[in-house]
Every structure is written in C-alpha cells, then in structure tokens.
Amino acid sequence: MNRGPLIFLGLFFALASSWYGMVLEPQLELGRLVETNSVSAGETYPVPRPGQANQGLQVYRANGCVECHSQQVRPTPADLERWGKRRTVAEDYLYDRPVPLGAQRVGPDLANLALRPRTEAWHLAHLYAPRSVVPGSTMPPYPFLFETRKRGARPSPDALQLPAGFAPPPGWEVVPKPEANALVAYLNSLKADAALFDAPLPLPPRATNAVAGTNAPASATSRQHE
C-alpha cells in the first residue's frame, strides 16, 4: 500500500476534474455573458441597477437577508405558480455582486418582488416593524436602519406612518436612514420577467373571453394579446 505518488496523482486527477467541470467550465460558458435582447419587446436585458439599488444590494448582503430569502424561480409547477412567470436564468443575475441566490425559503422568494403590489412606504414599515404590516411575521425588525428622533415643528416628510402599538412615543418620529432607502430601492428593482430566448414567457392561459364558444382557433385569439 505504499504508493504515495500514485495516490497523489489519483487525488489530483479527481479534484482537478471536478474543478474543471464545476468552476472552469461554467466560467467558460457564462463568464463572458453579455446583455441580450428580450424576445418580444426587443429591449436590452438585463439593465444594470441604478446606483441606489446597487447600494441596497450591499445592505442586503451585510445583513444576511440571503439566510432566509431565496431569489430563484425553478421550473417546477409550484414555483412558477407562486414566485414568477418563468424560471430564472443566468442573465437575470448578470450584474449582481454577490449573487444572492439563497438556500432557504424561511421568508418569501424575492426574485420578482417588484412585481407585487408593494409601495415604498409598505417596505419601510415592514423593515422597521414587520408585524405592523404582516401580522405574525417571523422576520426580525431592523430598527438600526432607521433613526428615531424628536419631531421638529413639523413632522419630516419621510417619517414613517406606523399603526398604534408600533409608533414611537408622541413627539417622536421614525425616519429611514440612507441604508433603508437604498435597500427599498434594491427590493423595488427585483424582477425577472423579461421574455428571453432561453426562458420564454408561457402563453397566457386559454382565454375565456367572448370569443370562446366560437369555432375560431384559440391560438388566433390569444395571439392578439401579444
């Protein structure tokens, strides 16, 4: 059993092959990926996030949001129904650093958060006191992204409107720090809904409109929507 060099060569080969397959090959395939044109609209995709949203990604990273929130839609029926119109692909993450794919859904998936009807005020209140807008939420509050200060002669325009039980004592107000605003800008930039060649949007469901019941082919009617 004394074949040191052979053992070393074998190990080197084993690790080198996995390094080639799982590190080098994806880099060769995807490392030089560039923007593409979305299929139907012909717009460039993806577009780099605006500066404030990019800062928000760093707030997202620093506070470990990725520990509870995933940002990927898998091509499974449940994921497509719940989290997005199409699966997420490499293009969706082109400009992210780090790429916060996540490994847990303790909280909701955020790949298409910007498509949900949430206002900026909702996000800010949710970050400051999650239970003020989502009763029973297990998300931790992030009061350190906000400043609680004495109200001046007039309340600040960006002071949070909080329900009773979450509001600061009278004469005080809660104002978002720049980090909170950046984080909300980032959250509002999260969407992966462009129709791409490798991730097309599914056709809208078979329409139940006035045309239904006629003998016209369904594809002819649904094509009018595009």
Binding site: F8, L11, F12, L15, W19, M22, V23, P26, Q27, L30, G31, R32, L33, A90, E91, Y93, L94, Y95, D96, R97, P98, V99, L101
Partner: peptide, 26 residues
C-alpha cells in the same frame, strides 16, 4: 490536499478577481 485548493480557489474567485453573475454561485 483538498482544503488549500478549494479554499484558495473559491476565495480568490469570489473576493479578489470576482467572476460574473451566477458563476459566483457555482
């Protein structure tokens, strides 16, 4: 043998000369 290879490769490719997009996740 395994540890120094994977540890240095991953850290260099993620923090020193960061790769683009999902290659980071890979």
């Amino acid at each position: 043998f395994w540890f120094p290879w994977v540890y240095s490769t991953a850290n260099v490719l993620l923090t020193c000369v960061p790769v683009r997009g999902v290659v980071q996740a890979a």
